[in-house]
Computed example of a mutant assay.
Amino acid sequence: MTAQTSGLHDHLGYWLRRLSDEVHGRFEKQLAEHGVTVAQWAVLITVYRGDATTTREVSRYVDIDVGAVSRLVDRLIAKDLISREPDPDSRRILRLTLTEQGRDLAPRLAEIADRNDAHFFAALTPDRRRQLEDWIRDLVGVTTPPPGKGSTSS
Rank of each mutant, 00 (worst) to 15 (best):
D10Y: 09
L105H: 01
D65R: 11
L98Q: 08
E85Q: 13
G67T: 11
Q4T: 14
V36E: 00
D63W: 10
K149P: 03
S153W: 03
V140C: 04
K79P: 00
L96Y: 05
M1I: 15
P145Y: 14
Y61V: 00
V47Y: 07
D127K: 11
P107K: 04
D114E: 04
R129M: 08
A32E: 01
E57Q: 13
F120M: 03
G13H: 08
I93P: 02
S59K: 02
L96T: 09
A3T: 12
L94F: 08
R75Q: 04
V36N: 00
R56H: 12
D74T: 09
L31C: 03
I93L: 09
D51R: 14
H119A: 08
R91A: 09
T97N: 07
L94D: 12
M1Q: 13
L96C: 04
A123D: 12
L124P: 01
R130F: 09
I136L: 11
L44Q: 08
I93N: 05
Y48M: 09
F120P: 02
H24T: 08
T152I: 10
S153C: 04
V62T: 00
H11K: 13
A78W: 01
G25V: 10
W15D: 00
L19M: 11
L31Q: 04
H24A: 05
T5Q: 12
L132W: 11
R71D: 07
E100F: 01
M1V: 15
D127T: 13
Y48S: 10
Q131W: 12
L31G: 00
T53L: 10
T54H: 06
R129A: 14
R129F: 15
L132M: 15
L81W: 03
R56K: 12
D104T: 07
E57V: 06
R103A: 01
M1C: 12
R84T: 12
L105V: 00
W135M: 15
A78D: 14
R137W: 04
S153N: 01
G25N: 02
L31K: 01
R18V: 15
E57W: 09
D89R: 05
L124E: 03
P86C: 08
A123P: 02
L132V: 15
M1T: 15
A106N: 02
D87R: 03
D74I: 03
F27Y: 07
R137N: 11
A113P: 05
G150R: 14
G67A: 14
Y14I: 15
G7L: 13
H11A: 06
P86M: 11
D65W: 02
A78V: 05
F120S: 10
A113C: 06
I136D: 07
R92Y: 04
V58D: 01
